[in-house]
Design a protein around this nucleic acid. Structure first.
Lengths: 241, 241
DNA sequence: TGAATATAGATATCTAGACAACCTCATTTT
DNA sequence: AAAATGAGGTTGTCTAGATATCTATATTCA
């Protein structure tokens, strides 16, 4: 077998099987043909086939039973906030207009908490970006973002407005590719400026989030405080044993 | 090479490398020896070595750079709520006394929302378990759990009190092994009975959680409403690209 | 000097097998 | 009837290679 493009066989096979799942040629609960049969069908070795299948198992679309077979999972898990996709956040079915407004961009000295998260010294320079996201004109989310200045040396504050639409790509173009992160969620009450900006009564519920994003090697790239209107926002997480 | 126990080589190697990470023989940022060298060292083929390494990469402990090498991540991601561990929830350093009290166990007819989550018909029988978790006597969390009756046919309500300490094991013994799940988080306000039981003022922030747990094949095993005191509880999630 | 090019070494992909471990189910034995 | 056995099929683990692709560095060329 020769590869036509630069696409590895296991990727091609994985995507072909995924198509069969989406088009329901493979239905929930179905058993796939044996690995030997499938490998022969796709014209690859069994190890290569398994590499493709493994990806789909990691995604929860398939599962294996030793000595029995490979099956289609009964719960196709939908949108999954535990994977990073740089806020493509699929617009909900009732897709209203989502806007994002830059409230401020500045250079600040990192306070202790931020510095610790970004792995820099307290007082070191960081870029602070505050944004407001609205759905259909309703304010939903405030982001308070901090970047280590040292990773974005020749960035001017004026550049940020243009980069707003896709911050992650902006990071990439400066050599900082996001690979993973950690976030922590709490329930809080709206107060002061935050309440005002989200047009909430003081005391209204807020889904508060802290998030740190890292590059492949674990270098912190972004630290974020995030305030979400409790009545308009929820987070879905896939759990995996 | 012969395996001494039934332990596969790739598991043994994975754990040996993990030991070296924990003991910091391998430090953050270090490059591991090349795959060829490591395979020779451990006396296995390169494919087998890679299988072990892959697990550690999935855990975020290592990362690879094509053409360059395999490295130790700089951020050893700690406790990770996006993996399921059946509520061993490592007691925090300041480990206070955690107690769990059964408030009620009953057979109820599933309402629409619960029925949909459990994949049963509205009105079908389900087992409802309500518990209160306290830390140091302070009420923290209320769980409102629903199980499909059909999966726990010969269970008597009296059995549940004994099983409380480890519900997941209880599920297993009835042939229902938890493999994955989905949870959704919201910020809400405490009200009525919930506020009372958590000893909160009406209006206090609550971290509200809905969770469905599934078996390997996607069969829903448990559906849960969960109310956490906002000021005493947070959820940490690892994000993976 | 600066750009193109070789080169060495690393990971990525892939093969064509082998045997082990496990599950199911039919058959035989007790 | 119940338990043990065995056969056949499936996934799990593993090998000893091969070639491709990528990266960084050193070298050569303009």
């Amino acid at each position: 077998m020769d590869r036509i493009d630069g696409i590895p066989h296991y990727v091609r096979i994985r995507e072909e099987i995924r198509e069969n799942l989406l088009s329901e040629k493979l239905k929930k609960g179905d058993r796939l043909p044996s690995e030997e049969e499938l490998a022969a069908f796709y014209g690859v070795s069994r190890m290569t086939l398994r590499q493709g299948i493994n990806d789909l198992i990691d995604e929860g679309l398939l599962y294996r039973r030793h000595g029995v077979g490979t099956f289609v999972s009964k719960n196709h898990l939908m949108r999954d906030h535990s994977r990073l996709n740089g806020f493509n956040q699929q617009p909900e079915p009732s897709s209203d207009e989502i806007t994002e407004e830059l409230l401020s961009a500045s250079i600040v000295q990192a306070k202790a908490h931020v510095a610790k998260a970004l792995g820099i010294e307290e007082g070191d320079e960081s870029i602070r970006i505050i944004t407001l996201r609205c759905i259909d004109g309703e304010p939903i989310t405030i982001h308070d973002i901090y970047l280590p200045r040292v990773l974005f040396k020749n960035v001017k504050l004026g550049d940020i407005d243009a980069a707003m639409s896709n911050l992650w790509e902006f990071y990439s173009t400066h050599g900082n590719v996001i690979k993973n992160g950690i976030q922590r969620l709490e329930a809080r009450q709206a107060e002061g400026e935050i309440a005002e900006q989200l047009k909430l009564e003081s005391g209204a519920p807020i889904l508060y989030k802290e998030r740190t994003l890292y590059a492949e090697d674990g270098t912190p790239i972004e630290f974020l405080y995030c305030y979400n209107r409790g009545d308009m926002y929820s987070v879905t997480i896939r759990l995996q044993r």
